[in-house]
């Protein structure tokens, strides 16, 4: 399967350098520790916990995903890829890879957050679902933006600047719904947010697929 080959290639590269994973991990852990020191023993509301979690996730995502296309442009491997696979395929490959990367990050950061800051657990299943869909949308919107940044001279500081306006509806919804769930909200309390996150992801990924050719090819 062609998509599988693209993902496998990136995983192999990642496995040998561990660049993205390392920088992502260090970033997330640094942010977590800082937050944990700042909060200390003060009790926070569910909303505040949710906001902190998403701030950590957002900025780690920015530092981790920026590399996904920059490395192809910097090392001049991008033209070889252009001659071998259709743009849609390349996009989907990077999308899947970023998704795997961010899911592993989430699987690490969230438990660590609970251990370090011990918020009230609230309702776990709705919270997990919101965070899962939120990460999906985050990856869906950021992947094409990472490609734009790679084409714009690989200035990785550009990514958060470009991402924030596009991601704002997603972040606002995700923070709010995560807060609701951490405050003990049930599945039906967050169902509207879940639908919203899914709709956002579908729309933005479809648009990315249509527009990616313009970004990827000169």
């Amino acid at each position: 399967m062609r998509l599988g080959a693209l993902i496998k290639k990136d995983l192999l590269e990642e496995f040998r350098t561990r660049y993205a994973v390392n920088s992502l991990l260090m970033f997330a852990v640094t942010a977590l520790v800082m937050v944990s020191f700042a909060v200390g023993m003060n009790p926070l509301t569910g909303q505040l916990h949710a906001a902190l979690i998403w701030i950590i996730l957002f900025f780690s995502a920015m530092s981790g995903m920026a590399r996904s296309f920059i490395k192809e442009e910097e090392k001049n491997t991008a033209p070889a890829l252009r001659l071998a696979a259709e743009p849609e395929l390349v996009f989907l490959g990077k999308l899947c890879l970023n998704f795997l990367l961010m899911l592993s990050l989430g699987a690490l950061v969230i438990p660590l957050y609970y251990i370090l800051l011990h918020p009230r657990p609230g309702s776990l299943a709705p919270a997990a679902l919101v965070i899962f869909l939120g990460i999906t949308g985050l990856v869906g919107a950021t992947t094409i933006l990472a490609a734009i940044v790679a084409k714009a001279g690989s200035k990785s500081t550009l990514l958060p600047v470009l991402s924030l306006p596009v991601l704002l509806p997603l972040l606002v919804t995700a923070i709010n719904a995560t807060g609701t769930a951490m405050g003990g909200g049930t599945l039906s309390d967050v169902s509207q947010a879940l639908q919203f996150l899914a709709a956002y992801t579908v729309v933005i990924v479809t648009a990315s697929l249509l527009l990616f050719d313009f970004v990827w090819n000169d």
Binding site: V166, L170, I204
Partner: peptide, 8 residues
């Protein structure tokens, strides 16, 4: 892309 996010 930015325009698409506005209605949301």
């Amino acid at each position: 892309l930015a325009f698409i996010s506005v209605p949301f």
